[in-house]
């Protein structure tokens, strides 16, 4: 069984982890096209490449980010999400219809 290096808990069997999908930047959900939104929700490149993914260490409920090569299945790096997400995300208040 593969081992994954959790930034908080160290090397553990892959059975302790849950896959959380690719790390993707959400497009501007109010102004992007339906197509752009559908690509964000449903489309995956599925390429032979290094992918950046969410992984959860289930026993400690700890999410982290892993960079994994899809061909070798090797993790090149795992790190705390705060390295990538370090500022508070705000969502704009919608523009009222009449102001458009």
């Amino acid at each position: 069984m593969k081992m994954i290096n959790c930034p908080l808990n160290g090397l553990r069997n892959s059975s302790e982890f849950v896959y959380g999908g690719e790390v993707k930047d959400m497009p501007d959900h109010r102004n992007c096209s339906d197509r752009e939104w559908a690509e964000y929700i449903f489309f995956h490149d599925n390429a032979v490449a290094v992918v950046t993914e969410w992984w959860l260490h289930a026993p400690s409920s700890y999410w982290f980010i892993g960079e994994r090569h899809t061909a070798s299945d090797e993790f090149l790096r795992t790190y705390d999400p705060s390295e990538r997400f370090n500022t508070r995300v705000e969502f704009a208040v919608p523009v009222v219809e009449s102001e458009k």
Binding site: N9, R12, S15, E16, H57, A58, P59, S60
Partner: peptide, 9 residues
């Protein structure tokens, strides 16, 4: 160690 013991966290 935070882990799984007999399949329980």
């Amino acid at each position: 160690a935070q882990t799984s013991v007999a399949r329980v966290n």
